[in-house]
Design a binder for these strands. Structure first.
Length: 608
RNA sequence: GUCCCCGUAGCUCAAUGGAUAGAGCGUUGGUUUCCGGAACCAAAGGCUGUGAGUUCGAGUCUCACCGGGGAUACCA
């Protein structure tokens, strides 16, 4: 089923072109701003009338005269300065619902006719450190973008650009050696750059893995020794050098550290229902060999030049504090490369090897300037032509109750694992209080879904670009636009269906054989129309990369359902009404479930 | 200094250049012989920071100013 808005846009735009005698007219169809104006409105008449120097209401008359959309809408009404108001016909709505009912997998949401290769760069944790709250937004927003694009039929290539390289590894390797961890030379981990496949001998890795399972402690201890022991410091430097020279022992140790980190963050992805796997990992280290070429190529193209000993690209429009040109530094004066260099190499790889039509970077707003410069350099160097879309999907910070970025009392970053643990713990208490008679196993499952769901939903429902204040109390509230409210709405429908079954109603048969609907009550129609807009909501959400559009749609759906539910009994409804109402219940449940589990990665529960 | 983001109801936040700017929380009042009241209904609450401009039409676009945050040469 094509989004209604698109059907109307095409039909009315075509008639406008005909009337105006020119191509490329736009009807500008929007959802009606007020229910009294109908369901949709065409706003494009006024602009066209202006252009043609004619009266907009007269133009609207002419368009409506020639317009044949009687299969979709009641006769259009012209209102105000030149709006065309459109009201859907009940039969059209009925047919739409029946179509959704038949397509249990996709809920009649159409796939794109132009599938793109979309590379989505998100999460990017630092190796050898625990994931903290700063990784939350990138990880789950990126995942949501992947899920939505994939659902619409695009070829999504997730990229986890992990921080697995840098001078800190010298320190960590030196510390491993210091702790007398010699590597079994037979222990091999290989990473295939092309397939992304990782092969490793887990058993042989265990001896090292066990020792650094507490990553944070390991890192802290290493850092401490590095700071106080000059001999160790020297050792660390040597280790970096050896690692960069691909000396086998150092490489093996480095791989062990990377592996231990992966063992840490993969379970977090799993808990968060984030579809990032080891195969999606392509860290900074993967681009090492290409970095000198990036610099050399930019030099060859006369884009890079030396300034104060550093290799820089200067771009028009970027200035520093003194008003002088601001450099995009690709090589430090000591010869080392930076994240700018790595990002350029990654971009070139994604366009060249991964055949990206679009690259989406999900990082916090503070990196905006970096990405502006990165994209500008890539364009100038011809590494991304105009057919490749480059998007920086930025987001605001997660703040504490004090309005400052969320930290622990001692001023450290809040560990993501601990944050999720607490969410589940608090959800457990709520479940215990609300529904003590459930089995321990059920309570555990519900607390998991509610706790994790609450954290994710709270993030998604906020505008991506603004900061938001993290509050367990608010996100776990049963009232308002929260995960528990959505999950409750779903559980309540499921409860109705269970009750129906217990009264001998075979829902599958009743809904399977349904061929005509009886949408007579206003609340039924309202709910039905909203159910048909699911595809539209996803389109909006994905075109701006804004998950809050999707949560807003789902919340509105749950509200419309509640309104319908209080005014229309389902189980005791008359025989000519019950199938329609059961269908409304079932489609609402299926849409909520699809939105939450498939697009947002939030579990639903049958009861809570 | 320059650039970027933000400023909307008491609070937290929505809003795709369109008609009378919407939700939730909180406040006040109401709703249960019926399917989960963890719900629903209703009321009060606004010069969209200020001032100009563009437009048939501006919370949305432009400019200036005020206030908050961020970025701004060798961290990522």
């Amino acid at each position: 089923m094509k989004p209604i808005i698109e059907i109307l846009e095409e039909k009315i735009s075509a008639v406008m072109s005909e009337v105006a005698g020119q191509e490329k007219c736009s009807a500008v169809i929007k959802q009606a701003s007020d229910p009294k104006f109908g369901d949709y409105q065409a706003n494009g008449i006024m602009a066209l009338a202006k252009q043609l120097k004619t009266n907009p209401r007269k133009l609207a008359d002419q368009v409506v005269e020639k317009l044949d959309i009687s299969d979709i809408c009641e006769s259009p009404e012209i209102a105000g300065p030149g709006f065309i108001n459109l009201r859907l016909k009940p039969e059209f709505i009925s047919n739409g619902l029946l179509e959704i009912n038949k397509d249990s997998v996709n809920l009649a949401v159409e796939k794109t006719t132009e599938p793109k290769n979309a590379v989505v760069d998100f999460s990017g944790p630092n190796i050898a450190k625990q994931m903290h709250v700063g990784h939350l937004r990138s990880t789950i927003i990126g995942d949501c973008i992947c899920r939505m694009l994939k659902f619409l039929g695009h070829n999504v290539i997730p990229q986890n650009h992990v921080g697995d390289w840098g001078t800190q590894f010298g320190m960590l390797i030196a510390y491993l050696k210091d702790q007398q961890h010699n590597v079994d030379p037979d222990f091999v981990v290989t990473f295939d750059n092309d397939s992304g496949e990782i092969t490793e001998d887990i058993e042989k890795a265990n001896s090292i893995f066990v020792e650094i399972s507490d990553l944070e402690k390991f890192y802290r201890d290493a850092k401490q020794k590095f700071d106080i022991d000059p001999e160790f410091k020297k050792w660390a430097r040597t280790s970096v050098f050896l690692l960069q020279r691909r000396n086998k022992e150092e490489v093996l140790m480095w791989e062990a550290i990377v592996r231990a980190s992966r063992e840490h963050y993969l379970p977090i992805y799993e808990r968060l229902k984030v579809n990032l796997k080891a195969k999606d990992e392509r860290g900074e280290s993967a681009y090492n060999d290409d970095l000198p070429h990036v610099v050399a190529d930019l030099k060859k193209a006369n884009l890079a030049k030396e300034s104060d000993g550093a290799m820089c690209v200067f771009l028009d429009g970027f200035k520093n504090k003194e008003g002088e040109p601001l450099p995009f530094i690709i090589q430090k004066s000591d010869g080392a490369f930076l994240y700018a260099t790595t990002d350029l190499a990654a971009l070139r790889y994604r366009v060249g090897k991964l055949k990206a039509d679009e690259i989406i970077y999900v990082t916090d707003a503070r990196q905006k300037l970096h990405f502006e410069m990165l994209f500008a350099v890539a364009r100038k160097a011809g590494w991304a032509n105009d057919n490749v879309k480059l998007n920086h999907v930025m987001f605001g910070s997660v703040l504490g109750e004090n309005g400052q970025p969320l930290k622990t009392r001692s001023g450290e970053n809040v560990k993501l694992k601990e944050l999720l643990d607490e969410a589940i713990e608090r959800a457990t208490k709520v479940v215990e209080q609300k529904n003590p008679e459930l089995s321990l196993e059920e309570k555990k499952k519900i607390a998991q879904a509610v706790g994790i769901g609450a954290v994710k939903y709270a993030d998604y429902s906020n505008n991506r670009t603004s900061d938001y204040v993290f509050s367990f109390d608010k996100m776990l509230a049963m009232e308002g636009n929260t995960a528990p409210y959505m999950q409750y709405a779903y559980a309540r429908i499921k409860s109705i269906e269970r009750k129906a079954e217990s009264k001998g109603v075979d829902i599958a048969t009743e809904l399977g054989s349904i061929s005509t609907l009886n949408l007579s009550e206003p609340t039924e129609l309202e709910l039905a129309k909203h159910l048909m807009r699911y595809g539209e909501a996803i389109q909006y959400a994905v075109s701006d990369f804004k998950p809050n559009y999707l949560t807003a749609y789902l919340y509105e759906l749950a509200q419309k359902f509640s309104t319908f539910y209080t005014s229309c009994p389902v189980l005791i409804a008359e025989p000519d009404q019950r199938p329609t109402r059961l269908l409304l219940c079932d489609l609402t449940a299926r849409t909520i479930k699809h939105g939450l589990t498939e697009l947002l990665g939030i579990d639903v529960v049958e009861q809570m």
